[in-house]
């Protein structure tokens, strides 16, 4: 027997509190699924329609806009503390279509499909004619900037052998010959000089370095400036019967910088 399509129950306001809760659930779900790049924050709810669901509950079919933040997906910073990329940084927007089941006061994402796109170069130029535009991550200038930045960082932090995990973002300046890159590194279980076979070095669990590097051409050479924030895993809280004092439960991240003229 052919089933009759369900008629929508209602078209609520996009800023309805229930709709906002569903949108928050979509945002959390999307971020939990990302394995590279940056977290996204909700920017606007575009459409919503509520359908009945058998045997119980309601399904919110929605379209939402999100914006890329400065927090990497492996960064433990809570989403509410992550700032969105501004237009001058060449903002990236995520458009998502999703269905969310509301049942017994709980929201659960049933499915979601997102597409992310950078703002157009024309829009960036309107607000900031001299701002750098996003560049492909496999651009030779980007690859070189990452290699030079990583080498500069390692030259000043030789206590650990670091591995490059990901190149996350790159921007090339339209006026001066400089390339800005963001990448993620991880300390490994190898000593400072690494191993004969670097592939045998394993990244330490849950420890990452979020790095920003700028390479600027200058008088036949180049300047390299790099800084990395190394995330420190949470140390278990001391037990009451422990006699030896231990560090505080949550160590702050460690910022390490090199440059600006290190190479």
């Amino acid at each position: 027997a052919r089933s009759h399509p369900l008629l929508p129950l209602r078209d609520p306001d996009c800023d309805d509190p229930d709709v906002e809760l569903a949108a928050m659930e979509i945002t959390q779900h999307v971020n939990s699924q990302l394995q590279s790049g940056y977290k996204y924050r909700l920017n606007q709810i575009d459409k919503v329609r509520v359908y009945p669901r058998r045997p119980a509950g309601e399904v919110y079919v929605m379209e939402v806009d999100m914006l890329e933040t400065t927090c990497h997906v492996m960064d433990k910073t809570p989403l509410e503390n992550c700032t969105v990329r501004q237009l001058a940084e060449h903002a990236v927007e995520g458009d998502c279509e999703a269905s969310v089941l509301k049942m017994d006061g709980q929201y659960k994402v049933l499915n979601v499909k997102c597409e992310s796109n950078p703002d157009s170069a024309e829009d960036v130029r309107k607000v900031c004619p001299q701002c750098s535009l996003l560049a492909p991550l496999n651009d030779t200038r980007v690859v070189h900037a990452v290699e030079a930045s990583l080498a500069a960082f390692i030259s000043q932090n030789q206590s650990t052998f670091y591995k490059l995990l990901e190149v996350s973002r790159a921007q090339i300046s339209p006026i001066q010959p400089s390339v800005y890159v963001e990448f993620v590194i991880a300390p490994t279980d190898c000593g400072p000089k690494g191993a004969d076979d670097p592939s045998s070095c394993h990244p330490l669990t849950d420890q990452y370095g979020f790095c920003k590097g700028t390479v600027t051409k200058k008088d036949g050479g180049e300047d390299v400036a790099v800084s990395c924030t190394i995330s420190v895993p949470l140390v278990p809280a001391p037990q009451p019967d422990e006699a030896v004092p231990t560090p505080a439960a949550a160590e702050p991240d460690v910022a390490i910088a090199a440059g600006p003229d290190v190479a």
């Binding site: 306001d13 800023d15 920017n43 709810i45 919503v48 237009l87 903002a91 703002d119």
Partner: peptide, 27 residues
């Protein structure tokens, strides 16, 4: 006997307000 002037941007009763508010900026 004058009719109240229309309020720009005011939605008619029962018309859903979408899209919703912009939290950061429009791209």
């Amino acid at each position: 006997g004058l009719a109240a002037p229309a309020v720009p941007g005011a939605a008619a009763p029962g018309v859903p307000l979408c899209p919703g508010r912009i939290r950061h900026f429009k791209v």
